[in-house]
Write a protein that binds this DNA or RNA. Structure first.
Length: 550
RNA sequence: GCGCCAGUAGCUCAGUCGGAUAGAGCAGCAGCCUUCUAAGCUGCGGGUCGGGGGUUCGAAUCCCUUCUGGCGUGCCA
């Protein structure tokens, strides 16, 4: 907010002086407060193209900038930085602006209603959702919320991989468990089959509903029935887990349905028309190496069946057909080898490959008693998303996942999160919100809380800690835009902690509600309200509750 | 072998896309509740930003190289 204002003013001055500004300069907050509250490198960056020295350029700018009443001081320092100190009245004005906006604070049209499709989780419907899916859910959903707030037109979608090999294996696993249930000796449970307990539960449920009728069906029909049943049950299970995590999707797209609609054949024909397929060893290949992949990929196997890639590509093309101009896929760590062929296909079909953007979430390591927990879906040893929510709660789980940048490994210490009085930073933030609510309750009880706040109250706020809080507040709108642009929701967690830290400090230093000075109390209440709103916004964007009491 | 990601304080991680003296939380030590929530605050100690080279006014950030760890490299999905 403030950065923008300063940036615009510097740009205006440059224009009015008839100076070139080809290269981009920035306004930033210096590490060292001695260097002012804000600083710009404009003179250094633009000196060369204006055929002058940084110092001279800075001096020219300085003369004009000093005329602005919002700057307490403007100075030249070091190799040509221009450092700004802002007047207290600017902060006071900004606070009022922030306060008036309430929960709309931070809203903008930055995204210009661009239609963005966020695809995430998209887990195989062959078992409960795991921890990585939980991370994807937290990441994707928060990004969605932030993008929506800053004026994009985003949609969340879950692609259901319900048509591949793994579904057949699932059906077989279920059949074995069902036979077992009927006392049949099934021998050793196959290695590739799904070993999880949930398959047994499914068998029980199916048995209760249909008994031996399933076994009387012809094999093909039985197989369909088993698939049908397992898929719908597991999908529902996944949907419920996500719902508990406060994550919903605008769309659920089934691979089977897609195949049924004939889009697979369509895509194959497109690729053939683009002259980038060939037959070899009874299989149909995509010559993806022509388009940047490191090896060619099979589209149709020698047995006539189709690989996963084709319907997935078809799915991506439907996104474009539906009018989305940005496709963001959130992938797990084991899929990065898959990207070159997707991009290659876009290139082959003359789509702009930049429309497709892949975010990789690195793996999540669970630690218990200081040891890494090994997880394997096939072997049935998995810690599920539900387990995690049960243990640490939705708020803490979401926070942990969001607080780390996507492409870094995440170590999740279960024991630490297990401790109820833990050092979990999510409590730090929620506590700040609850604390403000408590103060407001107190003020209302003491009849200090005004019916309506007046702008003049802002003039009472002059302490450095108060101004620091206001400045932090003003950073939020720009931050949200940055988060949306760079797809980095983790910054929201960092920001929230910083804002809370400032408020906790302010709280410890100054009494907000004091009968001795009612006007100052009201002013601090106004500030507290603004902080509370900002916190509520941040927590809501992260999908974390903002408690009024703790 | 090749490709992708990571390497910052004892631990977990930030670092506003090239800025000035690299930050936070936890852990450790020492303090702060007869006043609005102590799930909080204050102070102290702690660093070869994995190593080496380069680019420039200026590098944790960009380039090259090298080491370490994770993942990928299926006619699996």
């Amino acid at each position: 907010m403030i950065k923008h204002i300063i940036h615009d003013q510097v740009a205006q001055v440059l224009t009015s002086l008839g100076l070139s500004q080809q290269r981009e300069f920035i306004v930033e907050v210096p590490n060292n407060p001695d260097n002012g509250e804000f600083s710009t490198n404009a003179a250094m960056v633009l000196a060369k193209e204006n055929k002058t020295s940084p110092k001279k350029l800075a001096e020219a700018l300085l003369k004009e900038l000093k005329k602005n009443k919002y700057y307490k001081s403007v100075e030249i320092a070091g190799p040509g930085f221009i450092n700004f100190r802002l007047s207290t009245s600017l902060f006071q004005h900004m606070l009022w602006d922030v306060y008036k906006l309430g929960l709309d604070f931070g809203n903008s049209d930055f995204g210009q209603q661009e239609k963005v499709l966020l695809e995430f989780v998209s887990a195989n419907p062959t078992g409960p959702l795991n921890i990585v899916s939980a991370r994807a859910a937290a990441y994707g959903d928060t990004l969605y919320r932030v993008m929506k707030k800053v004026g994009f037109d985003p949609a969340r979608e879950f692609y259901i991989n319900d048509a591949g090999n793994q579904v057949d294996i699932l059906a077989e696993s279920l059949e074995l468990r069902l036979r077992e249930l009927h006392g049949e000796n099934i021998g050793e449970f196959p290695y590739e089959a799904y070993h999880g307990e949930y398959v047994k539960h499914l068998a029980h449920k199916l048995n209760a509903a249909e008994g031996v009728r399933v076994f009387m069906m012809p094999e093909k029909e039985r197989n369909e029935r088993l698939k049908e049943f397992a898929l719908s049950e597991l999908l529902e299970m996944q949907r419920l887990s996500l719902e508990r995590f406060d994550v919903t999707f605008e769309g659920w797209v089934s691979e089977r349905t897609l195949r049924g609609e004939g889009v697979v054949e369509e895509v194959l024909s497109y690729l053939t028309e683009a002259d980038c397929t060939y037959e070899k060893e009874d299989a149909v290949w995509f010559a993806s190496t022509k388009f940047g992949d490191d090896k060619d990929r099979v589209l149709m196997k020698s047995d006539g069946s189709i690989t996963y890639f084709v319907p997935d590509l078809a799915y991506h093309l439907t996104k474009i057909q539906r009018g989305f101009t940005k496709l963001i896929d959130v992938f797990g760590p084991d899929h990065h080898g898959y990207v070159p062929r997707l991009k290659a296909a876009f290139r082959a079909l003359n789509y702009d490959e930049d429309m497709l953007e892949i975010v990789f979430l690195q793996q999540v390591n669970l630690y218990e008693s200081g040891e890494k927990v090994k997880m394997s879906k096939r072997a049935g040893k998995i810690v599920t998303m539900d387990d995690l929510i049960n243990v640490v709660g939705k708020d803490a789980a979401r926070y942990f996942f969001i607080a780390r940048k996507a492409n870094a490994h995440l170590n999740f210490d279960l024991e630490l999160a297990l401790q109820k009085n833990n050092d979990n930073p999510v409590y730090y933030c929620q506590y700040a919100h609850a604390r403000i609510c408590s103060i407001i309750r107190k003020a209302k009880k003491d009849r200090i809380y005004p019916r309506a706040f007046k702008q003049e109250l802002c003039l009472k706020l002059t302490k450095p800690d108060e101004l620091a809080l206001i400045r932090k507040l003003t950073e939020l709108p720009g931050l949200l835009e940055t988060i949306a642009e760079y797809r980095e929701p983790h910054r929201l967690a960092t920001y929230t902690e910083e804002l809370c830290g400032l408020y906790h400090r302010f709280y410890n230093k100054y009494q907000v509600v004091s009968l001795k000075s009612r006007e100052l109390s009201k002013a601090r209440l106004l500030l507290s309200e603004a902080v509370k709103n900002a916190l509520a916004i941040c927590l809501d964007l992260m999908g974390i509750s903002a408690p009024e009491k703790m």
